[in-house]
């Protein structure tokens, strides 16, 4: 697993992808930081809420190549015929993408620190919101990895990832409109409701379990998709 992890992490940082995405993410955080914090609230958590939305765009780009590229380049054969098992390979890839995400999130922690020089200390609410943000990222990345397993075209993988995440993001708003059973399902998939708890300062076990199981389910589904494809076609 760690062999795959190191390899993927290297390929992120050997190419411009990681730097561009991290730079872009930090820049956007800075842009939101100014009006929200300086002008309006003096509180960092609303910025994180907005960054959750930005993540919808960043994560699919981060994860689009992670499995699709192997299929296209024929390196999938190497991974699947090695004695390393498939779940370990997928987990290695997941953690590599997560590390990039973790780095970009860690850099944005500079903002609350700057704030703490002028305002009060870093509140537990901010820490809680960051904790929630890290969990949200795990769920997003698991879904991104999943969408990358569906196709060998990176652009399509990114679009599937983005559309899927967007639907889950909007699920709260869509659920009452759709109604019935489908509405209920959408409610389960709503990533946003649970996230709001965190940045409102509520740290419950429920959302933590929710995000972790969401992540687990999509990693499991990714393994299943690849297994299934091997059984059904070439």
């Amino acid at each position: 697993m760690w062999a795959v992890y190191r390899k993927e992490l290297n390929s992120y940082f050997h190419s411009p992808i990681a730097y561009v995405l991290i730079g872009f993410f930090v820049l956007l955080t800075a842009i939101f930081f100014y009006p929200y914090v300086m002008a309006l609230y003096g509180d960092f958590t609303p910025v994180l809420s907005t960054m959750g939305f930005i993540l919808l765009f960043i994560v699919p780009i981060l994860t689009m190549r992670i499995l699709a590229e192997d299929r296209k380049n024929g390196t999938e054969v190497l991974l699947l015929t090695s004695p390393t098992s498939l779940p370990k390979i997928i987990l290695g890839k997941f953690f590599a993408a997560y590390t990039v995400f973790f780095v970009m999130t860690a850099i944005t922690f500079v903002f609350p620190i700057i704030l703490s020089f002028y305002g009060g200390p870093i509140t537990p609410q901010v820490v809680g919101a960051y904790f929630g943000f890290l969990l949200l990222g795990a769920a997003f990345i698991a879904f991104g990895v999943f969408s990358s397993s569906l196709t060998e075209n990176q652009i399509i993988a990114a679009v599937i990832g983005f559309v899927g995440l967007l639907i889950m993001w909007l699920a709260d708003a869509l659920a009452p409109v759709v109604g019935g059973f489908l509405g209920k399902v959408l409610g389960w998939l709503s990533l946003l409701t649970r996230y709001n708890d965190f940045y409102n300062g509520i740290l419950g076990l429920g959302p933590v379990v929710y995000y972790l199981s969401f992540t687990g389910v999509f990693i499991f589904l990714t393994v299943r998709v690849i297994e299934r494809r091997r059984w059904s076609q070439g």
Binding site: W2, A3, V4, R6, K7, N10, S11, H14, S15, N73, G74, T75, E76, V77, L78, L79, T81, S82, P83, T84
Partner: peptide, 30 residues
């Protein structure tokens, strides 16, 4: 899989790695 070395028709190489990095990676994988 431990007992088999496979060379597919299309060499399964990662283009963004050097030869040495790649072979090290495969060694770890195996």
């Amino acid at each position: 899989k431990k007992r088999i070395g496979f060379m597919p028709e299309q060499p399964p190489v990662f283009k963004d790695m050097t030869v040495w990095e790649y072979l090290r990676f495969v060694s770890d994988l195996k």
